[in-house]
Simulated scan of single mutants.
Amino acid sequence: MSKDESRKHLLARVECAVRGGFEGEEELLEGLEQWVEDELGEVDGELVEELGARARKLLQEQRVLEASWSEPTLNDALDSAFEELNANGIVALENAGYTMSDGWSDVNEVASYQDTPPRGAVFYHGQDLERGVAGQGLMLAFGAYESNSAKHEAASLAIAREVCDTLERHGVKTEWNGSLEERIRIPPFEWRKRRWTEVARA
């Protein structure tokens, strides 16, 4: 990848991070130098400055935009559904790692610290987040923590059905063909994840 392509990639990554809503302002800005070093193999101070200026501008715009979200967003509903799933013995993580293997590593780590062993897990990872922010919908991975291999498939399917039911109850539509081979899909929606405000609870 050329330096110009790397620059465009990093600018797009900044925009996704700002709109994604997970990283705090300070955390995002402090991480830019590492992003550049990881991408180019060296620190380019000029590019770090450019990315920082772009991030600050986008953050300012996002703050104004978020202040106008007077009604609950679909992201708010997703957050609430994941809270309920976590409370009911299913590890539910948003933006878990960057790849599928990263995501499973993250949920498994969370599961290992639980006083009561969870029944299963559901998550979406960083690549899913990028597609979600771009308005392409969201894919959710799922599975059961069932050590008996004969029972694992049925237990995983039950976890998926519970995830779909919980999401639907919170107003989040889902699409799933009922098989282990396909992830649960949330159809395209406007990505509005809060960073500074809180949803008004009924």
Score class of each variant (00 low, 15 high):
Glu146Thr: 11
Glu50His: 03
Lys57Gly: 08
Ala141Ser: 15
Glu190Asn: 07
Leu157Asn: 11
Met1Tyr: 12
Ser179Phe: 09
Ala158Ser: 13
Leu78Met: 08
Leu58Ser: 06
Leu65Tyr: 11
Asn86Phe: 07
Asp79Tyr: 02
Gln127Thr: 03
Thr197Asp: 15
Asn177Phe: 07
Leu129Val: 02
Leu180Tyr: 15
Lys151His: 14
Val133Lys: 00
Met100Lys: 07
Leu10Asn: 05
Ala53Glu: 15
Val172Asp: 14
Glu153Thr: 15
Gly31Val: 04
Leu180Gln: 11
Ala200Glu: 12
Pro118His: 06
Glu37Lys: 10
Gly97Trp: 09
Trp176Gln: 05
Trp196Tyr: 12
Glu84Met: 01
Glu181Ile: 03
Val91Glu: 13
Leu59Glu: 12
Leu10Pro: 04
Asp44Lys: 01
Ala92His: 04
Gly171Glu: 13
Phe142Lys: 00
Arg201Lys: 13
Val43Asp: 08
Gly89Phe: 05
Asp38Lys: 10
Arg19Leu: 11
Arg54Pro: 02
Val64Cys: 09
Leu180Thr: 09
Arg183Ile: 01
Arg56Trp: 04
Ala150Glu: 15
Gly52Ala: 06
Leu40Gln: 06
Thr174Pro: 07
Arg19Val: 11
Arg7Phe: 07
Phe22Ser: 00
Ala92Cys: 07
Glu130Leu: 00
Val133Tyr: 10
Gly31Cys: 03
Lys193Tyr: 14
Leu11Phe: 12
Arg54Leu: 09
Gln136Lys: 13
Ala87His: 09
Glu162Val: 02
Pro72Val: 00
Arg194Ser: 12
Glu130Met: 01
Asn86Val: 02
Asp4Pro: 01
Gly21Ala: 06
Ser6Asn: 12
Gly45Trp: 07
Gly89Glu: 12
Met100Cys: 09
Asp102His: 10
Ala141Pro: 07
Ser80Asp: 15
Glu27Pro: 00
Asn148Ala: 14
Ser80Leu: 10
Leu28Met: 07
Tyr145Leu: 03
Leu11Tyr: 08
Glu39Ile: 03
Pro187Cys: 09
Ser101Ile: 02
Arg185Tyr: 15
Leu167Asp: 15
Asp106Asn: 11
Val18Thr: 08
Leu85Asn: 08
Lys193Asn: 15
Ser105Glu: 13
Ala144Thr: 12
Pro72Thr: 02
Gly31Gln: 06
Glu25Gln: 07
Ser6Gly: 13
Glu5Arg: 09
Val14Ile: 14
Glu130Gln: 06
Ala12Trp: 06
Ser6Pro: 02
Val91Tyr: 11
Ala92Gln: 03
His152Tyr: 14
Glu37Gln: 12
Glu181Cys: 04
Leu74Glu: 15
Gly24His: 05
Ala155Met: 05
Trp191Tyr: 12
His152Glu: 14
Glu168Cys: 04
Leu140Ile: 04
Phe22Leu: 00
Leu78Tyr: 05
Arg169Pro: 09
Glu46Arg: 05
Leu93Gly: 06
Arg183Phe: 11
Asp79Glu: 14
Leu78Ser: 06
Gly24Leu: 02
